[in-house]
Simulated assay, not measured.
Amino acid sequence: MVQSVGVRYKLVWRLLIISNLALGAYMFATPRRKSTGKEDATLKAESKARSLTAISSPPIVTMEPVDVDLPIPENQKQELLK
């Protein structure tokens, strides 16, 4: 008895279709943000100003000193292992 793929995976197909329809309904049901020309102009000006300041002043990287532990002498190592 050979079953087709559609019959064999009926539950999977149904879940995919239902989830796809739910996602589409969610996308169409949510309100879109309406933008005006003034807001777009200010956003563009702000992003341009940010990009100019980022180019003109590179980030300052500071290096912190690393604490280096001194090696433990052999006699202290042997005492620790005892």
Rank of each mutant, 00 (worst) to 15 (best):
M1G: 13
V2F: 10
S4P: 02
G6Y: 08
R8T: 14
R8I: 09
R8K: 14
Y9G: 07
Y9S: 10
Y9D: 10
Y9V: 03
K10I: 11
L11M: 08
L11T: 15
V12S: 07
W13L: 14
W13Q: 06
R14G: 03
L16E: 03
L16N: 07
I17E: 02
I18F: 06
I18G: 02
I18C: 04
A22P: 01
L23D: 00
G24W: 00
A25C: 02
A25L: 00
Y26P: 00
Y26N: 00
Y26T: 02
A29L: 08
T30Q: 08
T30C: 06
P31Y: 00
R32Y: 03
R32W: 05
R33T: 14
R33I: 04
K34Q: 13
K34N: 08
K34I: 04
S35T: 14
S35G: 06
G37E: 11
G37M: 10
K38N: 09
K38S: 07
E39F: 03
E39N: 04
E39L: 04
L43D: 13
L43K: 12
A45I: 11
A45E: 09
E46C: 09
S47H: 11
K48P: 00
R50L: 15
R50W: 02
L52I: 05
A54H: 12
A54S: 15
A54L: 14
I55R: 13
I55N: 13
S56G: 06
S56H: 05
S57L: 10
S57F: 07
S57A: 13
P58G: 05
P59T: 09
P59R: 02
I60N: 05
I60K: 12
I60R: 13
V61S: 06
T62D: 10
M63Q: 15
E64I: 07
E64N: 13
P65D: 08
D67G: 05
V68C: 04
D69Y: 07
L70I: 06
L70F: 06
P71E: 09
P71A: 14
P71Q: 07
I72F: 06
P73W: 01
P73L: 02
K77M: 12
K77W: 09
K77F: 05
Q78E: 15
Q78Y: 05
L80T: 01
L80G: 03
L81W: 09
L81G: 01
K82N: 14
